[in-house]
Computed example of a mutant assay.
Amino acid sequence: MKDCILHNPRCSKSRETLKLLHERGVELPIVEYLQQPLSKSELRKLCELLGVKPLAIVRTREELFGELGLARDNGYSDAQWLDVLASHPKLMERPIVVLHGRAAIGRPPENVLSLLA
């Protein structure tokens, strides 16, 4: 996966993370993932870079999560959660920064500083 910030301009944490990177002179391609959703394979790679299972990047408190009848303990496989994320990018945690073959979730924004070391 190429270096980028998976960004939602309507999200305050995403904007704060982008600002934090800019203040440190880090300019990354911005991928507005709601407009350019990630494929299932890209999501799988992203989870590998983060070192987490797909459920870990699902926004379970998002209203859409409940509207879809989803539950953390529904027995879905990793592949099924990747399908959910690919079909409903709004459920993906944000922002996520990918830099030099590593990734971090910008919640809080300071989490991404570990990628700069």
Results as ranks from 00 to 15, higher is better:
residue 100 H to N: 14
residue 50 L to W: 02
residue 32 E to L: 10
residue 26 V to R: 04
residue 92 M to S: 05
residue 20 L to I: 09
residue 17 T to R: 03
residue 18 L to C: 08
residue 41 S to F: 08
residue 43 L to V: 02
residue 96 I to Q: 05
residue 85 L to Q: 00
residue 89 P to R: 06
residue 68 L to K: 10
residue 28 L to G: 14
residue 92 M to D: 08
residue 26 V to F: 05
residue 100 H to T: 13
residue 45 K to E: 15
residue 46 L to F: 08
residue 95 P to T: 06
residue 38 L to F: 04
residue 40 K to F: 07
residue 26 V to T: 07
residue 40 K to S: 13
residue 67 E to Q: 15
residue 102 R to N: 13
residue 72 R to P: 13
residue 65 F to C: 08
residue 95 P to I: 06
residue 106 G to E: 04
residue 28 L to Y: 11
residue 67 E to W: 02
residue 91 L to E: 03
residue 84 V to F: 03
residue 63 E to L: 09
residue 30 I to F: 04
residue 51 G to E: 02
residue 94 R to C: 10
residue 67 E to L: 09
residue 33 Y to M: 14
residue 77 S to A: 13
residue 64 L to A: 12
residue 114 S to T: 14
residue 95 P to H: 09
residue 99 L to K: 12
residue 58 V to S: 04
residue 21 L to P: 00
residue 88 H to N: 13
residue 29 P to Y: 10
residue 19 K to S: 09
residue 108 P to W: 08
residue 33 Y to I: 07
residue 73 D to S: 14
residue 85 L to S: 01
residue 78 D to M: 12
residue 42 E to G: 08
residue 68 L to V: 04
residue 9 P to A: 13
residue 75 G to H: 10
residue 37 P to C: 10
residue 99 L to T: 05
residue 16 E to C: 01
residue 106 G to K: 00
residue 41 S to E: 15
residue 107 R to N: 01
residue 41 S to K: 05
residue 85 L to F: 06
residue 60 T to C: 12
residue 47 C to Q: 06
residue 69 G to A: 15
